[in-house]
Amino acid sequence: MTTFSGEPSAELADGLARQNSTGLGRLLGTGGVGHADEGPDGTMTATIRIPEDELCWEPATLILPHGGNLELTLINDDKNTHCAVLPNNGDPKIIWLVNHAKGTASLELAGPGTYYYSSTTGNDEGRGLVGAIVISGEVPDEAKLDRPPQPRP
């Protein structure tokens, strides 16, 4: 028999979104949601950070309005060393983030779709340091099928 709480926010506050509480690490995808800013030339910018002792990215989910170029600023506010391996067309990009460090990454991604990135040291990935870049929007009209609009879920 499974007891269904129906209160995910309470469960998250109670421990799913914390280190060494309900589980050992933080449940993936339980951080905040942010949106990238878009400049006049279509380039997008955003900042993500690692809070102290939380082993997560904030925001954990970054939404982009469309595919293209993203200028990302990464800040490690933790008192431990991490890194980020980030999706990028051509080759993933890596940046080493020692304690209290700040760096940048220039990324090119196609949309729509979701890309995950993580700190690939130790088991940062399992403890919660997995973030998502979610690209919204549609493919260009010329790439769509020749058929009337179809229902979606």
């Binding site: 490690n76 980030l86 080759d91 993933p92 990009k93 890596i94 940046i95 460090a101 760096g103």
Partner: peptide
């Protein structure tokens, strides 16, 4: 707290 350490810019993984 001192200023952030400059981590520079992310590099292609293949470079490593």
């Amino acid at each position: 707290m001192t200023d952030y350490v400059d981590a520079g810019a992310a590099i292609p993984l293949t470079q490593l």
